[in-house]
Amino acid sequence: MKPVRYLLICFLGLSGLLASCVRGEDLDNDAEGNFKALWTILDEHYCFFDYKAQTIGLDWNQVYTTYHNRLSKDMNSMQLFEVLGEMLSELQDGHVNLYASHDIARNWSWYEDFPANFNDSVHELYLGTDYKIASGLQYKILDDNIGYIYCPSFNSGLGEGNISQVLQYFAECTGIIVDVRENSGGELTKAERLASHFTNERILVGYMSHKTGAGHNDFSGLQEIWLEPSDGVRWQKKAVVLTNRRCYSATNDFVKDMKECPNVTIIGDQTGGGSGMPFSSELPNGWSVRFSACPIYDVNKNHTEFGIAPDINVGMKIEDLLKNKDTLIEFARDFLKN
């Protein structure tokens, strides 16, 4: 049975040779292990370290020291979650979250620290009850022949046909308002799809890059982002985009694109930002973590992580609210009529 022995030796030898070649790091599922895993995931993948060191004085190594000192061996799961959540909030990034079964750690200062510039009750008065809905877009023609579209999310199944139908409906209008206030994002492709109906030319709207390694400065070159004109109905008259601080992520990207479109004016407050496309990862204890991974820049190669300034800054006036008027919508209507 010598050959059988040869077979077994080959079999076991090759199996053993390869069994431990390419593996991840051993991660302990305790407070120390989960802390290190989270800090390392961010350290190797987060895309705004340099930018945030310049703008908010972020020192990620100091963050490690500060929060590592708060660990203890006997801390429970909720206490650990609190420490890790606070550590992540140092990044001041709405795309950075820690998800556990009992809570979501977040930093929503990008809108919580600013005026809303939006009022649900007043907004409902403008829409009334007879507005139309096309795959998430709520729209109607206002009394002064201004078309009004409210886009609360880019997570809907917004298609070319929907947008073309809406714009066709507004064909006789003087101008249109695209209201994206309170829209905290969704799919980038849907945002681009809507914006593509506002240009007749292929236009450069920004840049994108990604990390090529674990180092804080390991980035690819800037990839140009071009906005292709839609094959459907394209809006040729004046248009206004209304913004507030809750315009985040894909909506921030939509505003970036619309800013480059002709005949489009951005009115309202600065957007909330969120220009890093988020990736996901996880800790040994199963908690999920989300973080900004791929930075998107505007056409001047500037970060828009902390928002995009409007062309005309308009805030909600309390006296208008008392009269059930939305200052931003009223301003936009006057702007389009003149």
């Binding site: 990604h210 990390k211 990839q223």
Partner: peptide, 16 residues
Amino acid sequence: EYGESYYEIFELKDSG
């Protein structure tokens, strides 16, 4: 690439 999204590869035609 290391931190690259498939959006960049297929939508932006990134030539990484």
